[in-house]
């Protein structure tokens, strides 16, 4: 390597400059605001107060944090249960089938989030396709027996719709890391387990799952983090009581105009995210050792 520092400066300076100015500085400003208080309509005085953080512990906001974690957790669990067999099938598929199945998993992943959410609204709303189909069946049944008039199911604007939507959006996030982990597995171990008399289920639970655990954990983290911070899904599919933490943050920065409090909320969300990533990195490192 040459002692000349110019090539280093030329390659490092632009991305470093960009990262500092257009990413770290904005975050630092929000961080500073989280210790401030509103002094006037647009002025924020950074007074070093912890009052904003104390406010996040109020039952209302703590409840929303817990609820968000619960919703994200349930979403992750459903994704894991639904996605694991898919990842397994892809792993042991022929090369041709593998390419197609991966493409099928990835295509929704590349599709615009808004389009996917809109598609769900069209399916679930009162005049949506699900209710339309049910109404049709109801009418057919009504020609045989006398039935009360059809009342559309309220599938939209509730917590179940939010979880449905989050699973819909995040399923590929789970399948891809699971596939990646299962694909690296030593197949002879599975074959050995089956040959030695363990059943498929026992082999799955005692051999495959422990070996693929780092991949499973990374799938859980990769799914849980965006689900926890989801804004659009609860906003469009949820009802008045299905707000998640991101919706509260948005409100502080827009309608409620309480930036310091919003800043504190978003930094708590950020700390939670970073802690989860650190834990995941540590389990991965321990496994690698």
């Amino acid at each position: 390597m040459s002692s000349d520092r110019r090539p280093l400066a030329v390659t490092l300076a632009p991305p470093l400059f960009w990262l500092l100015l257009f990413f770290l500085v904005p975050l630092a400003v929000v961080w500073a605001y989280s210790f401030g208080r509103n002094a006037g309509l647009t002025e924020i005085e950074i007074s070093g107060t912890f009052a904003n953080y104390a406010r996040t512990l109020e039952p209302l906001y703590l409840g929303i944090f817990l609820k968000s974690a619960g919703v994200a957790g349930l979403t992750t669990l459903i994704c894991l249960v639904a996605g694991f067999p898919v990842a397994l099938a892809i792993t042991f598929a022929s090369d041709r089938a593998k390419t197609w199945l991966l493409l099928l998993v990835m295509l929704p992943f590349w599709t615009n989030l808004l389009i996917r959410t809109y598609a769900l609204i069209a399916v679930l709303r009162d005049e949506g396709y699900v209710n339309f189909t049910l109404e049709w069946i109801w009418a057919r049944l009504g020609s045989i027996w006398t039935l009360p008039p059809f009342v559309p199911l309220e599938l939209l604007h509730n917590n179940a719709a939010v979880i449905f939507g989050l699973v819909y959006v995040h399923l590929p996030f789970m399948v891809l890391p699971l596939y990646s982990a299962l694909d690296r597995l030593d197949r002879s171990l599975i074959e050995a387990s089956l040959d030695l008399g363990a059943g498929q289920l026992r082999t799955m639970l005692r051999v495959v799952v422990p070996l693929a655990l780092p991949g499973i954990i990374s799938g859980i983290v990769i799914t849980f983090i965006p689900a926890l911070g989801a804004y659009l899904t609860p906003d469009l599919l949820g009802g008045p009581d299905s707000q998640m933490i991101a919706n509260v943050i948005e409100r502080q920065f827009k309608r409620a105009n309480d930036w310091p409090f919003g800043a504190a909320l978003s930094f708590i969300l950020m700390y939670l995210t970073l802690i989860m990533i650190a834990v995941q990195a540590m389990t991965e490192k321990r496994k690698a050792r």
Binding site: L24, P26, L27, V30, Y231, I249, F253
Partner: peptide, 24 residues
């Protein structure tokens, strides 16, 4: 630091950009 923009929740980055382009 380069990994941060990949992992930071979108909403946090969104408000950071809002604040940056409003005040800084």
């Amino acid at each position: 630091a380069m990994a941060l923009p990949i992992v930071v929740p979108e909403i946090c980055m969104g408000v950071a950009m809002l604040v940056f382009f409003a005040r800084v």
